[in-house]
Design a protein around this nucleic acid. Structure first.
Length: 846
RNA sequence: GCCGGGGUGGCGGAAUGGUAGACGCAGCGGACUUAAAAUCCGCUGCUCCGCAAGGGGCGUGCGGGUUCGAGUCCCGCCCUCGGCACCA
């Protein structure tokens, strides 16, 4: 141990030691309780950024802590290695995407190792390897056979920058998830879809049950909104004059149906074509539909202005026979509900706005109070009335019924008469996973031009490998690669056939990568269900919350689907989910192109990995944003005051340990029987620190508080050190050794390199990762004397120094006797005295 | 518009309904040093009275309420940061 703390030397020494000894390698061990700590795997862009550093520092701290608590901890890392940037680099630089990706992985792995994260690298996976994507294909085929995956022609989101289709989740808000300023377009394509909608209820049940306590609330909320369950009813409206044509609408407020004034259908609705053949306003409607079709979804919603065109046709309200005009309008979505709705202006804001604009009649049918009679129809300023209430006049047999009752009764009536039924509609739609890109998992399906079938590749032929020599200078490299299709025969008829030339969405890869970590070398199955039984589900998962309705919802459904094909035995794959806050720099988002970003390499070089980790953990609670501050030193180099402070603290710990290391080694096993007041105070600092750290880890992972506790303990030990002249006694050495041992264990999850060094200096031959967390002693952590505040009428007036076990009566007496308290109580009526043992005394006077 | 998170010193942030501001950053002072750096120790919410020792008042976005006691609980607002936004 050098006298001076040199982070680079210490860190490189222990990183080499860990690698040589495979310190963090774990095996399935049914005799031990497991803990699975997981961080979201990165895309190998080439460099890790400070957000990764924060994410992994948090995960690593927790993995370390659980290890010290005796768990068999699985803590793996891998690479989400398919995706566009590699393909773009291939197009631009004529490089091979696998070379580009693999060299990025090597560079980033080195960076992570230089940060000293405690991963079991023997379990590393990269999704772009055939060993991995082979199982994407295998699972794809099982899902296809099970009917959970199907092919359909559909209008899908298209990103012109990605040059591929996107899932709805990847086009939220009308923009591509990768290109935040590129509005998505709509295209009609044949696509493979995953039946997310089969799992709506199970996904919701998890949100409202199993996951309630373990998952961070806003992610559950967003998933719930995204699934978007609506309870309502379908009602069929016949077209006047052609009763064989029916328009089905969905409504959550069938109780308002007597106030309907129109049927409005989406311009893309297929029924429009049927209707138009003899619609009086055919031309106008077609022109309107064409105009809208030319717009991106974004453009359509950006202008809030509601626009519509009447078809000139009418539909019949099945409940009262009224003829309602059939319109088409821009605000009716083709892909929600039935693509058609009944307009009830008195009880819906949108319909109200639309009806006012086009001067359609408005009739109120729901009233807060039935006394509020039909005259209210004219009180437009009270409309729209959105609450439930009582059905008023014009509601036939239902007049006087509550909305709740009427919803049921009307739906039942419709069902009896065959023109509708109650129904549940979801906003979430099936997940389109075909991508028109070449750097992804080939879809293992064979299209036969001879017999017209599409059938899965034989399992023994998997993986369907991505050719190494794809030509990215032309469009559609897979379609145009002869070798990719050579020798492919139709499994159904044996004729020459062609492969599907799309690849899978990369979110398929990340659906189950953490299952693969449990059994990464398996060549017979994606993973052995028995191994998964031991390790899964994930106990702790942390990553960015941008994946709330992408990765985090896909992966839940995927786990359920894998269960349904017999791979695993549970539905929910993750018990506890946290999201870390963003890291911003000097008050604004980082931007590589503007040079406004933090380079982790630079920080490691200047402060070391330990100080870098410590500073970012200390900066804020894990779920809150960190505003990283940067200043320039006199030479123009970047300085990070937070890391500066962390380094200063670690050096302080180092110096104390260095000063005492020899004396600590002389301490025997037997504990001294008596301790002086200063020694007891030092032990109080030690045990209090342990207590605070333990609670910080156990209660919500409050790592910034854990760091503070380490600093407090260090300060207490320094204070103790200051009282010792010369060598000190054997008891002093015991107390210091106890303190340094505790401090080392407390630091191990936060700054593992220095902890390893301190641990070795304390005389241990094995890695601190094999050590056991120290239990704190509540008695030793307690104060020798308590400072009890005395309040008069709730205001602090004095403080008493008393023994912790003082009797309540004595405490009361002492409070009244206190010189500072007296002036406020003398000559006043004491109404009551509140004594909270060990906490305070409050005297209430009049 | 709807739904969340958050408003505490110069700054990041601590506080099971019980001494608000732990810990750190920045700042100030002292010790050590020929000097500086480093280090160690101390002070540091605002304000008023006092030469001082001391002491008083105010203080967790704003206004109410519950309570002996509120940063914390309840009601009503304001500001701010995110998310979703014609979902029938």
């Amino acid at each position: 141990m050098h006298e001076k703390y040199q982070p680079q030397v210490v860190e490189e020494k222990w990183q080499a030691n860990w690698a040589a000894n495979q310190t963090f390698r774990v095996e399935t061990d049914p005799t031990r309780e497991k803990f699975y700590a997981l961080e979201m795997l990165p895309y190998p862009s080439g460099k890790i950024h400070i957000g990764h550093v924060r994410n992994y520092s948090i995960g690593d701290a927790y993995a370390w802590y659980k290890r010290l608590r005796g768990f068999n901890v699985l803590h793996p890392m891998g690479w989400d290695a398919f995706g566009m940037p590699a393909e773009n680099a291939a197009i631009k630089n004529n490089a091979r995407p696998d070379d580009w990706t693999l060299s990025n992985i090597a560079a980033m792995r080195a960076q992570l190792q230089r940060m000293g994260f405690s991963y079991d690298w023997s379990r590393e996976v990269a999704s772009c390897t055939p060993e991995y994507y082979r199982w994407n294909q295998w699972i794809f085929i099982q899902l296809f056979k099970k009917g959970l995956l199907y092919r359909k022609k559909a209008v899908v989101n298209w990103c012109p920058d990605c040059n591929t289709s996107l899932a709805n989740e990847q086009a939220e808000g009308g923009f591509c998830w990768r290109h935040a300023t590129t509005p998505v377009e709509q295209r009609e394509l044949e696509q493979w879809f995953v039946k997310m909608t089969n799992y709506c209820e199970e996904l919701l049940a998890g949100i409202n049950g199993e996951l309630r306590d373990g998952w961070v609330g806003h992610v559950l909320k967003r998933q719930q909104d995204w699934i978007g369950r609506s309870d309502g009813a379908f009602v069929d409206f016949e077209v006047a004059g052609s009763p064989e044509v029916k328009i089905r609408v969905f409504t959550t407020r069938v109780d308002t149906i007597f106030g309907a004034n129109a049927i409005i259908i989406a311009p893309e609705h297929p029924i429009l074509k049927t209707l138009l053949s003899d619609a009086p306003n055919k031309k106008e409607v077609e022109a309107f539909a064409e105009k809208l079709a030319a717009m991106t979804p974004r453009e359509r919603t950006e202008s809030k202005e509601k626009e519509g065109v009447p078809t000139g046709l009418f539909a019949v309200n099945p409940f009262n026979g009224e003829e309602l005009p059939i319109w088409t309008a821009n605000f009716v979505l083709a892909n929600y509900g039935t693509g058609a709705l009944m307009s009830v202006p008195a009880h819906d804001e949108r319909d109200y706005e639309f009806s006012r604009k086009y001067k359609l009649p408005i009739r109120r049918v729901i009233f807060g109070d039935i006394e509020d009679d039909g005259n209210s129809t004219l009180k437009f300023n009270e409309l729209p009335y959105l609450d439930y209430g009582m059905l008023g006049p014009h509601c036939g047999d239902y007049t006087g019924m509550t909305s709740e009752k009427a919803r049921q009764a009307l739906a039942e009536f419709a069902k009896d008469k065959g023109f509708g039924e109650s129904n549940v509609v979801y906003r979430i739609r099936d997940w389109g996973i075909s991508r028109q890109r070449a750097w992804g998992t080939p879809i293992p399906m064979i299209h036969c031009p001879a017999c017209g079938t599409i059938s899965p590749e034989k399992e023994e032929n998997l993986p369907v490998e991505l050719p190494k020599d794809l030509d990215f200078s032309i469009g559609a490299p897979l379609a145009n690669h002869a070798g990719f299709h050579a020798g492919v025969v139709c499994p159904a008829c044996g004729a020459d056939a062609r492969r599907d030339t799309d690849t899978m969405d990369t979110f398929v890869d990340s659906n189950w990568y953490y299952f693969r970590y449990t059994d990464p070398k398996n060549t017979d199955l994606p993973f052995d269900p028995e191994v998964v039984k031991y390790w899964m589900p994930v106990d702790f998962y942390i990553g960015g919350d941008e994946h709330a309705v992408m990765h985090l919802i896909y992966t839940r459904a995927w786990s359920m689907m894998m269960r349904d094909i017999g791979l695993n035995h549970f539905g929910e794959p993750v018990k506890r989910l946290m999201t870390q806050g963003m890291v911003i720099l000097d008050g604004r988002k980082m931007s590589k192109s503007e040079g406004h970003f933090v380079d982790p390499d630079e920080m490691i070089a200047r402060y070391g990995a330990d100080a870098t980790r410590l500073s970012i953990l200390f900066a804020a609670p894990v779920d809150r944003e960190v505003d990283w501050k940067r200043v320039k030193d006199e030479n123009g180099f970047n300085e990070y005051p937070a890391a500066e402070g962390a380094l200063r603290f670690l050096a302080r710990v180092w110096r104390l340990a260095h000063k005492w290391r020899e004396r600590c080694l002389t301490v025997g096993d037997s504990q001294p029987v008596e301790f002086s007041e200063v020694q007891a105070a030092a032990r109080r600092g030690t045990h209090r620190g342990l207590k605070r750290t333990t609670e910080a880890f156990e209660d919500g992972l409050r790592l910034n508080v854990a760091v503070a506790a380490c600093m407090e303990t260090t300060n207490a030990l320094y204070e103790f050190d200051g009282t010792i002249s010369g060598e000190g006694s054997a008891t002093d050495a015991f107390v210091m050794r106890e303190g340094l041992t505790a401090l080392t264990l407390m630091l191990a999850p936060l700054t593992p390199h220095i902890a390893e060094e301190l641990w070795a200096e304390l005389g241990h031959a094995e890695s601190v990762s094999k050590a056991t967390w120290m239990a704190f002693d509540e008695k030793l952590a307690a104060d020798a004397q308590l400072e009890i505040p005395v309040q008069v009428n709730g205001k602090l007036r004095g403080k008493l120094l008393v023994a912790p076990d003082i009797a309540e009566e004595d405490l009361k007496t002492a409070a009244f006797a206190d010189e500072k308290v007296k002036p406020f109580t003398d000559g006043k009526d004491v109404v009551k005295v509140i004594v909270v043992p060990k906490r305070l005394v409050n005297i209430v006077v009049k």
